[in-house]
């Protein structure tokens, strides 16, 4: 907390009352952003915006400057098209609301599904899970444990069976049981593996055979400690499945997850939630302001 203020006030003091920002300040800003995994290109773009605004507005007070910095960085992030996710609400006419969860290996897909299911259930929705990771050792067992923890039904098949068939089953079952939400887990896959990405496209297609506009949500899960490779992940998963939003996990650690700024800058995908632990309650709604604030928390 102390260091964060130290950093921001150092920057703002150095800019206050001037119409240009001096080199050292910009270097500090660059270091803060790059160290948070924002990446060089996006960092330079942000610095450019800050410079322009300082030149234009000639800020006087440090308070205003704090706000300006925060704003310029927040402006990079895109907003979700509606606020329904904040209360775990479901858009009208989309029942069952089909959520497909994708991402590279080990980022936290299955855990996040447990947390999402819990939150939807708390919000009074009836939830079902679909275990379409039939590949990773004990993946179905893991999701089954989560379904028991939350107390929601799970649709599963034997290990090794066709993930598209499981997804199809899960959605069909959600329709026939009149469920509000169905969340489908998929196996982790690296985005440079073409046949695995094709498999995702196929899963998507088999879901839309039951409900033409489904999946309504395709969530890309990003590990908060991932560096610039997350940009490639966003690009390829979007190409294969039309990602609608992101969730950043493991932000309870020391990593900042700044690469989402770069992703937002390039692909305009909103972040909806963040994961802050391994417990069922460790999912929180993404808050731009808090996120940007934490980028400057350089204590560690």
């Amino acid at each position: 907390q102390k260091t964060k203020e130290g950093f921001l006030s150092k920057i703002t003091k150095a800019i206050a009352g001037k119409s240009t920002v001096d080199e050292e300040v910009l270097d500090n800003l660059e270091e803060a952003l790059v160290t948070a995994d924002v990446g060089i290109d996006t960092t330079l773009a942000i610095i450019d915006r800050v410079e322009k605004r300082v030149a234009r507005d000639k800020y006087v007070s440090t308070g205003e400057l704090n706000k300006l910095l925060q704003e310029e960085i927040e402006n990079v992030l895109v907003d979700a098209s509606d606020d329904k996710h904040k209360n775990f609400d479901i858009p009208a006419g989309k029942k069952p609301y089909v959520i497909l969860v994708v991402g590279v290996n080990g980022v936290g897909k299955t855990t996040t599904i447990g947390k999402l299911a819990y939150n939807y259930k708390q919000a009074g929705k009836s939830v079902m899970l679909g275990a379409a990771d039939t590949f990773r050792a004990a993946a179905v067992d893991q999701l089954t444990i989560w379904s028991e923890r939350v107390g929601v039904p799970i649709v599963k098949q034997a290990m090794g069976s066709d993930p598209s068939a499981v997804a199809f089953d899960a959605v069909q079952s959600a329709v026939s049981k009149n469920a509000d939400v169905v969340i489908i887990d998929t196996a982790g896959r690296l985005h440079n593996k073409l046949h695995l990405m094709d498999e995702l496209t196929k899963i998507r297609r088999s879901i839309s055979k039951i409900i033409p506009d489904a999946p309504h949500e395709v969530l890309l899960i990003l590990d908060g400690s991932t560096g610039q490779n997350a940009l490639e992940q966003a690009k390829h998963f979007t190409a294969a499945t039309d990602v609608t939003a992101m969730i950043i996990t493991k932000l309870d650690g020391t990593a900042k997850g700044g690469v989402v700024l770069a992703i937002a800058n390039q692909f305009s995908i909103p972040v909806k939630y963040i994961g802050v632990g391994e417990k069922i309650t460790d999912l929180i709604v993404f808050d731009k302001h808090e996120f940007v604030d934490s980028l400057f928390n350089l204590t560690r």
Binding site: V34, T35, A36, D37, V104, G106, D223, S225, T226, G227, Q228, N229, A230, G253, T254, A255, K256, V259, R300
Partner: peptide, 12 residues
Amino acid sequence: VDSMTGQDAVNT
């Protein structure tokens, strides 16, 4: 360690 790790790798 995951080879995709970013800047935080040193801290960890």
